[in-house]
Amino acid sequence: MQGTATVCDDPDELLRLATAIGGRYTGADRAEEFGRRNAVPGELVVRIRPTRIVSDFDVTG
């Protein structure tokens, strides 16, 4: 993938996204725990607006 990246270190946005991701992968009951553990100073959110994507199917197959 190629694209334009933006970086965010806003604590509220980090907490919101880390909690949402935590809910998806660890379950709703642990989402807040995951969010608080991962939305700490030094962590960042990087968003990429793709300009080019190259993909392939059945790579292992």
Score class of each variant (00 low, 15 high):
residue 1 M to P: 06
residue 2 Q to E: 14
residue 2 Q to P: 02
residue 3 G to N: 11
residue 4 T to Y: 06
residue 5 A to I: 06
residue 5 A to M: 07
residue 8 C to W: 00
residue 8 C to E: 00
residue 8 C to G: 00
residue 9 D to I: 01
residue 9 D to V: 01
residue 9 D to R: 03
residue 9 D to M: 01
residue 9 D to Y: 01
residue 10 D to L: 01
residue 10 D to F: 01
residue 11 P to Q: 01
residue 11 P to M: 01
residue 11 P to C: 00
residue 12 D to Q: 12
residue 12 D to G: 06
residue 12 D to W: 05
residue 13 E to D: 10
residue 14 L to N: 07
residue 14 L to D: 07
residue 14 L to K: 04
residue 16 R to C: 00
residue 18 A to R: 02
residue 18 A to H: 02
residue 18 A to V: 04
residue 18 A to G: 08
residue 19 T to A: 02
residue 21 I to S: 09
residue 21 I to M: 12
residue 22 G to I: 07
residue 22 G to D: 09
residue 24 R to T: 14
residue 24 R to V: 12
residue 24 R to S: 13
residue 25 Y to I: 15
residue 25 Y to D: 13
residue 26 T to S: 09
residue 26 T to F: 12
residue 27 G to F: 10
residue 27 G to N: 15
residue 27 G to T: 12
residue 27 G to I: 13
residue 27 G to P: 11
residue 28 A to I: 13
residue 29 D to I: 06
residue 29 D to L: 09
residue 30 R to W: 05
residue 30 R to M: 09
residue 32 E to K: 15
residue 32 E to D: 15
residue 33 E to F: 14
residue 33 E to H: 12
residue 36 R to N: 02
residue 37 R to A: 14
residue 37 R to G: 04
residue 38 N to K: 04
residue 38 N to F: 12
residue 39 A to T: 03
residue 39 A to F: 06
residue 39 A to W: 02
residue 39 A to Y: 02
residue 39 A to V: 05
residue 40 V to D: 05
residue 40 V to I: 14
residue 41 P to Y: 05
residue 41 P to A: 03
residue 41 P to Q: 06
residue 42 G to T: 06
residue 42 G to I: 04
residue 43 E to D: 06
residue 43 E to P: 01
residue 43 E to L: 04
residue 44 L to W: 10
residue 45 V to W: 05
residue 47 R to W: 05
residue 47 R to V: 15
residue 47 R to Q: 11
residue 48 I to G: 05
residue 49 R to H: 08
residue 49 R to V: 11
residue 50 P to Y: 12
residue 50 P to W: 09
residue 50 P to F: 10
residue 51 T to G: 07
residue 52 R to P: 00
residue 52 R to D: 08
residue 53 I to D: 09
residue 54 V to Q: 10
residue 54 V to Y: 09
residue 54 V to D: 13
residue 54 V to S: 08
residue 55 S to Q: 11
residue 56 D to Q: 14
residue 56 D to S: 15
residue 57 F to I: 14
residue 57 F to L: 14
residue 57 F to R: 10
residue 57 F to D: 12
residue 58 D to P: 01
residue 58 D to F: 09
residue 58 D to V: 05
residue 59 V to F: 15
residue 59 V to T: 12
residue 59 V to D: 11
residue 60 T to M: 10
residue 60 T to H: 12
residue 60 T to N: 13
residue 60 T to W: 15
residue 61 G to L: 13
